[in-house]
Each structure stands twice: as structure tokens, then as C-alpha cells.
Design a protein around this nucleic acid. Structure first.
Lengths: 353, 353
DNA sequence: ATTCTTTGTTCAAACGTTTGAACAAAAGGG
DNA sequence: CCCTTTTGTTCAAACGTTTGAACAAAGAAT
């Protein structure tokens, strides 16, 4: 539309993109001077700096990150691997991560592993090919072999894990204390008067779910509650999974009076089954979930759940990356930052006021 | 741990990264031959190709995308702008987009505008700096000025809009027919016996919400239902927003017998208020939402809603990009692909069986 | 006035790949 | 057997930036 004609318009229209060279030509100086001027190199006079910046703006100069990255070896790109995005937890973590990294001039390349080990491997492959300056990842539930992460370490770029990590990878990790979270949940349920607490658990081979199971078991013991095998039901933590497990629990000769689900979706499935069977929640059976997915506060009765400080995790991960990126001498080693989770008590587990 | 010693181990350990040059040195050929061999250039003999690929694997060669991108002018990166990720609609769109693009060797750089016009501008800036091969975007609710999109068009890289677009930008657009969707909703509600249908609407200045309002109005007319000003309530479509608007509706001397909310969160808020006031849903007031957020099927009663073919939109957007990317001669022009939305009827609007 | 520093800039190489053109050798055609 | 075509490879430049080293000019110190 408005084709502003200025004294450089010929250059503007001819060349596709303005480069540092074009600026140099206009000012009759060398590209190196221009580069230095744009980076505020101390040895460049204020006069040239100003002139360069003015022309740069007029020519609508946009630095070519690719060229810069190639030469300097820094792409200013951070690769992020997310198991899945259609989970509130992950999307809010990523959101905050991105924000923090953007502030420092990094862009985020974002890939989904979709809980598939193969995809995770390919993700790493492509991220490395794209010459990212670092990788931030959360393992899929399937992942038990970590050799592909060695590649990242071999490249000597920062690797930060969050939420789902593993000690064996031996790098920075940020997440919550799942073991302790289970304690918090059980403590609360006991305080509400529960005597038989069931656990709809995730698969034990996933570290975080295993920790939740261990925490649950130890917490029961702490309260001198008997541990009953049939009250621990491992499975995938989908709504359907939760429904199945809840049905099994209702069939027991002696029903539990509290259910702790290791995931909100499973908790929701359980709640549906409870309501369908006219079981009063929380009076007859109290219910607690895990993750604070938005719907937990929206259903009736609202589901008590564990809040994992999504935002903080995202920010901390970003900060940890920036720290590692700065310190060239850092050699990766296991370094866990564990946040205490927070129980959000809602109607589904409030037997007493 | 296991440091496999092979005949190239010296090279492996010395150099940080294997380049095309290293392969060339090993085989006593030139880098260009290696490059061509890796790309299956017809002029390279099968013998050399094999040899090159073998050595490449042994040296754990990883192409440097940056260098390749710089030389060839193709970064194999697609920039995606999402208004927000913590919405099921967007995350499933993005998920499918990514999958489709990955198949064709493209990586996705992903940025969130967080519904902020400023952020959107900065997003575009950084994506262009990163030399993406194209941009896929959905406008924020704030966006009414489109000059920043001209920059993308000026670079002559494909620009595809989805869900929230604008005719004035004059490019490819993929989304659903909001106007028609409202018709579908109203038709359904009328069929269920509703005579006074209220509309909890989004702000009219957003194209899609305006279209939903227009569709609602015209559909009422079609069914010879009187249009009543107080039954259209514009607002932000949050849970809280929905609650407010529903409360207002309940205060009316003559209550509606159906509520069509232009967003699921608002519908949920409305539902909460209805239940709190012991209004029977759908018997006294039927309820329909928009977007098919997961929770709509999870609450009781389940909320009827409009399903926007999230997966298909994601895939179509990706395909459209790939098409434009292939055809160098294409000049951007307005080209809309409109999908029919689908009403998912659930308990909240089923007055009749 | 001579030497030493500081200041402002240029030179040239480098990052790792791609690619048009050139070239030699082998194969095909008459 | 000479000429043309095909095949397989090399040469060298290019993509746009950054950066150590070099250098000239000006200012400071002696």
C-alpha cells in the first residue's frame, strides 16, 4: 500500500533483504564496523554507532540469526520437549518457560513426544540438528533407556529435565516431591477421618508414579493404617482408567472410605462412577486427585488435588538453563531442585469443616 | 561409560563435531561430493554414496542445519503463533500441525501471543529474525491493526492464518464457519422446544464472536423468534464471566428457556449458577457451549457444544503451508477454507429424547 | 621531536554447507 | 577411431555474520 519513498528506496526495492553489507555500503564503512556498531562495541565511535543504527532502521535491517548463529556458534534457540500439550500442567509450565527465555533473547523450539519413546528420540535428533543452545525435556512415560540423552551431554550443551526426570541422566532436574505429596494427601485424608484409603496409581515403572505409590504406602504406615494390596490399583490414569478402577473398588466386600488418584483425569473418572452409583462424596468416600487440572475446580463436587506450582517450575527451569548457559566451566551433574507441592482442599474431600 | 574404540576414534574424540569435511578427509574426496552423496545426487556413484553414508554413521555425523539454511536460504523452520496454549482447542490444533510438518522435515518454532497485540508483534519480529520459512498464526483478540503481517508478506514467505483471521490480511485462512455454527446451535435448541434463547456472547469486535452473534440473530429470525436485546450479553468468556451473565439472565422478569454461550468456559460458569439456583438443566433452561473443551463431557450434566474439528484444522493448515511453500509462483491472496462445525449434543440441551 | 597508548576502523578468515561451472574419464555412436 | 554424450567428481564462490589481528591516526608522555 503505502510505499514510502526515501533516499534508499532503490536499495530497498531491489535487494530482497537488507544485510549488514548494505548498511556498510551506504555509510562507506566496512561490514565489520557495522557489526561492531550494532553490538555497541566500545572501540566504535558514538558518531558511527548512531549513523549505523539510523541507517539500519531506515533500511529495515533485520539481523540474520542463522548467519550469526553459524559464525558465533550460538543459535539463541532452546529446544523444549513436552510429553503432551493438551494438559494444563505442561502448557502452563511451557508458557512460563518461554516467557522467561524470551526475556533473555532466546527463542523456543518446541516439540511434542506424545508419550512415545521413539518420537522422543527423533525430537532430540532434530533439535540437535537445529543447533539449539540447550535442551529442556520431560521424559515420556515409556522412557526407561536414556542413551539418547547422552548425545546431548556429549555436545556439551545444557540439558535440564523437569517433572519427569531420572537420576541416571545426571543433570539438573526441577520438579515436585512426589513422595512427599502422597504424604500430604494421606495426612489430609486421615485428618478428615478416612480409615481405608485406596490409591488409583500410575504405572510403577514411571518414577513419579512409583514415588507417589511409595509415599502412599509409607504414609499409611505412619498413621498405623493397614496396607491392603487390593487397595492399590495400577493403571493408566485416563478418565476411563479411573472409572474402571473405581468400579473395581466398589465391588470390594469392604469399600474404601477414601480414594487418592495419582492423576486428575483418573480422579474424575472415579468421581463419575461414584456419582452414578449414588455414593456420597465426600461423606461415604472422599476423593483426592493430582495435578490441579482446571476442571477439578469446575466439577461438582470440586475435586481436591495437588497443585504442582506449574508457573514456578517453568520459570525455574528457564533460569536454570540460563545459569548453565552462562557458566562454560559447568560439568553436568545430578542437581535436583525439588518443590513442595501444595494440597488444594475442595469439596470432594472435606468430610469435616 | 562404554567408549567404543574404532578406527576413527581419534577423530571422534578430538573434534567437537563431525562435519562434512571430516567425512571428506577420511574418504579422500571433496566436501561437495560428500554433500551430494548425502542428498542422493544422481551424478554420484552408488559406491561413493554408500561409503559416505557408512562413514557418516560411524563418525556420528549430524548435519548442521544452520549452515545448510544459510547457504540454501531454507531454514526448514516454521513459526507458529498461538494466542494461548492452555486451551484444548489450540493445543490439539498445534499438535496435529506439528506432526504433519515434521513428516515433511520441518520443525516448528512455537510462540505464544498470550492474547496480547504487543507480544504478537514481537513474536513476528523474532520469528522473522530466525529466518523461518513460513508463519502460521492465529490473531489475538486484541488485534485490529494488521500492518505487522505485511512484513511477513513482504518477505515473500507463506503466511497461513487459522481460527482467528481477517479478510484484510488477504492470505490463506482455515477455520470453521462461526455464523453457520450459531445456526446449528439455534436450530438444535429450537428443535428441543426452546422459545426464548439467550446468547452469552464474546466481544463483538472479535470477528469470530461477531459472526456467532450475527448467526444467532439471523437464526432466531429464521425461526420467527423475537429478538430481545437483553438476551444478548457481551463479555469475556471466562468461567467468571459466564457466571455473571447467567446471574443477570436469571434476574430477568421473563427467564430464557435456553442459553447459548459462545465459549465453553462461560457455559460452565453458567451451568454452575444454574445448579446453584436449583434450575433444572435442561428441563427449565437448556445450555449449549462452544469449542468442545474436554471438561464439557466431564461435568454433570454434560454440556452440549460445538466441535471445531481441531485435528483437521491443524492438519489442513500444515498442508496448506506445504502447498504454498512448494509453489514459488504463488502470490498471496485471500483464500478461505471453511469447515462446517459439528454440534455435539449432550445432556445439557436434551429436552426431548 | 620521539616513542607509547589509545581510539576507530579495516582486513581477512572463519562458521559448515550448497551449487553452478568446470573438468577428466568412461561410455556410446557413427 | 574420432566425436559426442554421460558419468563422477572437483573447484571455488557464496550465504551473512563475527572476530582476532593489523593498521593508521590522533593524543599523551617523555
Amino acid at each position: 500500500m503505502l510505499k514510502r519513498l526515501n533516499k534508499y528506496s532503490n536499495i530497498l526495492n531491489m535487494k530482497k533483504k537488507t544485510t549488514i553489507k548494505d548498511i556498510a555500503n551506504v555509510l562507506k564503512i566496512t561490514p565489520s564496523a557495522v557489526s561492531r556498531a550494532l553490538h555497541n562495541h566500545p572501540r566504535i565511535s558514538d558518531k558511527t554507532k548512531e549513523a549505523v543504527k539510523k541507517v539500519a532502521k531506515e533500511l529495515e535491517y533485520q539481523p540474520n540469526q542463522l548467519a550469526s548463529a553459524l559464525r558465533s556458534g550460538k543459535s539463541k534457540l532452546v529446544g523444549v520437549i513436552v510429553p503432551r500439550t493438551n494438559s494444563y500442567f505442561f502448557s502452563s509450565v511451557v508458557e512460563n518457560m518461554e516467557e522467561e527465555l524470551n526475556k533473555k533473547g532466546y527463542n523456543v523450539i518446541f516439540t511434542q513426544s506424545n508419550e512415545s519413546y521413539d518420537k522422543e528420540c527423533r525430537n532430540i535428533e532434530t533439535l540437535l540438528q537445529t543447533q539449539v543452545d540447550g535442551i529442556i525435556a520431560s521424559l515420556t512415560n515409556e522412557t526407561v533407556d536414556f542413551s539418547h540423552y547422552e548425545k546431548i551431554k556429549a555436545k556439551e550443551i545444557p540439558l535440564i529435565l523437569y517433572d519427569r526426570g531420572d537420576n541416571d541422566i545426571g543433570v539438573d532436574y526441577i520438579g515436585i516431591d512426589d513422595y512427599k505429596s502422597s504424604h500430604i494427601v494421606v495426612d489430609h485424608m486421615v485428618a478428615q477421618g478416612c480409615k481405608r484409603i485406596a490409591h488409583i496409581a500410575g504405572y510403577r515403572h514411571t518414577r513419579i508414579y512409583n514415588n507417589r505409590i511409595r509415599g502412599y504406602i509409607d504414609a499409611l504406615e505412619k498413621h498405623n493404617l493397614p496396607l491392603e494390596k487390593e487397595l492399590i490399583l495400577e493403571g493408566d490414569l485416563t478418565v476411563e482408567g479411573g472409572r474402571q478402577k473405581m468400579k473395581e473398588l466398589l465391588k470390594l466386600p469392604k469399600r474404601p472410605d477414601g480414594v487418592y488418584a495419582a492423576g486428575d483425569y483418573a480422579a474424575l473418572g472415579a468421581l463419575q462412577v461414584l456419582l452414578e452409583n449414588n455414593v456420597k462424596v465426600p461423606e461415604e468416600i472422599a476423593l483426592v486427585g493430582f495435578s490441579n487440572e482446571p476442571f477439578t475446580s469446575l466439577v461438582t463436587p470440586a475435586i481436591s488435588t495437588i497443585y504442582q506450582h506449574n508457573e514456578e517450575i517453568g520459570k525455574l527451569v528457564a533460569k536454570q538453563f540460563l545459569k548453565r548457559e552462562k557458566d562454560k566451566t559447568w560439568k553436568p551433574k545430578l542437581n535436583k531442585i525439588i518443590l513442595d507441592a501444595e494440597l488444594i482442599v475442595r469439596a470432594s474431600s472435606k468430610k469435616k469443616n
